[in-house]
Amino acid sequence: MTATQKRVLINRIVMGLSTLSAAIGLFFLFWILYILVSNGVEAINWDIFMFEGAPPGYEESGLKQALVGQLIIVGIATLVGVPLGILAGTYLSEYGQKSKLAETIRDISDIMMSAPSIVVGSFVYAIMVVPMGHFSAWAGIVALTIIMLPIILRTTDDMLHLVPTTLREAAFALGAPKYKVITQVVYRGAKAGILTGILLGVARVAGETAPLLFTSFNDNFMSTDLMEPMASLTVTMYNYATSPYEDWQRLGWAAAFILSMFILGLNIIGRLVLLTKKGK
């Protein structure tokens, strides 16, 4: 066998192995997706949206409390975290730029984005749950806000940086003060990018379970009192899935399906927003 024939043979083998590993990876991933959809579709019905949690064996049981709780917790965390994240990102891109302070904030945010979320949960437990004496929706909201902040901050920073300097200069040349240049010109130029960042950030925190386990805790019944423990899809899913009761497990799959579709939907919309912007 000549050297070239040997190389061609090795190439075939390695390329085959690499394609095989891609196939293995995709196999597992689509298997999970299939399980999720098949169990989810089977478990889902109108009752899930109509009824609260109930003891195992009850006919009229659903996920109403978890759906409402999820919306409240993630919704308020978004309402607080997004504006704060955008403003902080604005500082990095428009004021701090390459300063030492701005670079440090960037570095720390990058790390916090990948830091274990359960640690944030234990931190919030110490500063909120202990002083208040009980779990509360607020504690969960704070935990998710802390996780969301660096994500929104860094995407905003990156997206604002993409806005051409000439656009800012043109606005300044008309005599606009800096805050107006930023809010009226720069933000508009980066609109699609920031929106995508928000959607992906919300998708990310919506799937968080660990930081809610001992902050907002759980509640099998409908509650809208932010001072009290509150159910979320993720924690409910965890509790139901680890229970021995089949009807609870079925509800767990329904919750998993709803949550995944929500998160995948946000991701897909986020990508489309960026694509349509590029297309223009």
Partner: peptide
């Protein structure tokens, strides 16, 4: 893109899949 989307699926769902399947 499907690999990136799968990276976005919450880890609690991987855990649940692991437990049952």
């Amino acid at each position: 893109v499907s690999i990136e989307l799968l990276a976005a699926i919450p880890s609690v769902i991987y855990g649940m899949w692991g437990l049952f399947y």
